[in-house]
Design a protein around this nucleic acid. Structure first.
Length: 490
RNA sequence: GAGGCGCUAGCUCAGCUGGUAGAGCAUUUCCCUUUUAAGGAAAGGGUCCCGGGUUCGAGCCCCGGGCGCCUCACCA
């Protein structure tokens, strides 16, 4: 704490005080006056709500009575219905909720008084035996109850919960308490990451971590965040992609690597974009982009199956089929098929840049089911290997689902001379004012000179993938703390 | 960056043509020993996002600003 801590604790800002907070603070003070603590230690549950349900969820009333076993749970008090000398409570821990029944005659005067000072939102510890209520709900009949941690602020209303989207993002801790779907979404996100790690580890990939602070931003076309290291007195960029570092590792003999981590791009914010987002990148020596397309089909199929229980996933009213094989078109074919072309926009006659332009404008939004688009112009693929037969195109693909780019992969350019030329072209574009063009990375070219085996690599946007798997309309719904502007006074 | 919409009690929301600021939940007090949005009785609770303006009078109209959401543009 700062030296001013004692000064700061004298009183809370008046604007933040309301009757609810005052009342609860008063209760906490009462406990202190009596020699107790509103924030005690050594609160030990014997069971979680989930364990109790698993162990006794099938037992009937008489069987529960015979059990003669005491269960102690701890969790947040989320519901309270009092009848004067008895009450029902619902306590939630990380596994679920369990109902508590408390009766003055059973717990005694002192414990019942303690119970009456509890508020919804408090953490509590309860022990007792199990029984079933008239409506057959598995319930703990409390014999002992303790306050485990006092909550000073009231929670949102039980029925409607927290509706204000801004507050949900700013106070995600409250959102997580009162909006069960939010919790489910982030459990699924965690599970997806776990599956991804298992998937690559099972294929002998090594998980690695490369720098997030780059002296030269590289690996993607994007505007970086700039920062500064004081002692080194050098400008650094938050990484826009880990690509160039991961390929250095393949040069170093780590033939199969993957990294899951944050990228930072200093661009607009939308339902599809957060300034920091999570990217999976993986590289495999002696693989081709075609191998990676197959691998991607496998990965996505497995994710869909293990997260949603089926390969067809409902997303915003569309049924997305994650079963292999996914549709495949070259960019030419896709423009021909999905964009209305005339003599002027005949793909065969278009400049590469124009082709990509039409593709992005007319075709992308139509690619709802998982679709691989291959053969991107070399000009827009400065790190990808040229196709041997048609050097104006790169051996590259992107995967589109619901009109959004989900993955991008290609055969890696491992010819140092070619790479140096491509960097030069990028630097020229940079000088011409293209803020997203790449810088010349001499050390990366040196690494290629040491020798990169034939390699294919791919990046998958994890946030967008999780959006699909959790039927989330906005990227903010799959990021725990999405970037928001700070509000005055907060 | 542009346009549209929103911001009223702790929460969810009403608030008409400009005329004393409303409800439900929650809170406080009282009654209530099996509830499932429990029930009954009463009470308290407001910087109507902020700042100007118009008006006898503004939550409402006008101007400026803040924050958010959506669409578009840039991007993954």
């Amino acid at each position: 704490m700062t030296e001013n801590a004692s000064e700061g604790t004298k009183h809370l800002p008046m604007s933040d005080e309301n009757i609810y907070i005052e009342q609860r603070q008063k209760k906490a003070e009462e406990i202190r006056k009596k020699g107790g603590s509103p924030y005690p230690q050594n609160i030990r549950p014997t069971h979680t709500a989930g364990e109790i349900l698993a162990e006794c969820g099938n037992l009937k009333g008489p069987e529960l009575e015979k059990l003669q076993k005491t269960f102690a749970v701890a969790g947040r008090l989320l519901f309270l219905r009092s009848f004067g000398k008895a009450a029902f409570l619902k306590v939630a821990d990380y596994t679920g909720k369990i109902q508590i029944y408390i009766e003055k005659q059973i717990v005694g005067e002192e414990q019942f008084e303690l119970f009456k000072s509890l508020d919804v939102g408090d953490f509590v510890w309860v022990s007792g035996t199990l029984f079933r209520t008239k409506t057959d709900e598995l319930t703990i009949k409390a014999t002992q109850i303790k306050l485990a941690a006092k909550s000073i602020r009231p929670l949102p209303e039980k029925w409607h919960g927290l509706q204000d989207i801004e507050t949900r993002y700013r106070q995600r801790y409250v959102d997580l308490i009162v909006t069960p779907e939010v919790r489910e979404t982030f459990v699924k996100r965690s599970k997806a990451l776990q599956i991804i790690r298992e998937f690559f580890c099972a294929r002998n990939y090594l998980e690695v971590e490369t720098p997030m602070m780059h002296p030269i931003p590289g690996g993607a076309a994007a505007k970086p965040f700039v920062t500064h290291h004081n002692k080194l007195d050098m400008q650094l960029y938050l990484r826009i992609a880990p690509e160039l570092y991961l390929k250095r590792l393949v040069v170093g003999g780590l033939e199969r690597v993957f990294e899951v981590g944050r990228n930072f791009r200093n661009e607009g914010i939308s339902t599809q974009h957060n300034p920091e987002f999570t990217m999976l990148e993986f590289y495999q020596a002696y693989a081709t982009y075609e191998d990676l397309m197959k691998l991607t089909e496998e990965l996505l199929g497995e994710l869909a199956m293990r997260i949603t229980g089926e390969t067809a996933v409902e997303y915003q009213g569309e049924k997305i089929q994650f079963k292999a094989p996914f549709a495949r078109y070259t960019m030419h074919e896709a423009v021909k098929k999905f964009a209305k072309t005339d003599a002027e926009t005949d793909p065969a006659k278009l400049s590469p840049v124009k082709l990509v332009e039409i593709f992005e404008e007319k075709v992308e939004s139509q690619l709802i089911q998982p679709t691989f688009i291959t053969q991107f112009p070399t000009e827009v693929s400065p790190l990808a290997r040229k196709n041997d037969a048609h050097p104006e195109f790169a051996d590259r693909f992107e995967l589109f689902i619901c009109g959004r780019e989900i993955a991008n992969g290609f055969n890696e350019l491992n010819d140092p001379k070619d790479q140096a030329e491509r960097f030069k072209a990028q630097v020229e574009a940079l000088h011409k004012g293209n803020e997203e063009a790449m810088h010349f990375d001499e050390d990366y070219v040196r690494a290629l000179e040491v020798g990169l085996p034939p390699t294919a690599g791919e990046g998958i946007g994890i946030d967008r993938l999780v959006m699909l798997l959790t039927n989330s309309a906005s990227i903010r719904d799959v990021i725990l703390f999405p970037q928001l502007k700070t509000k005055e006074g907060s």
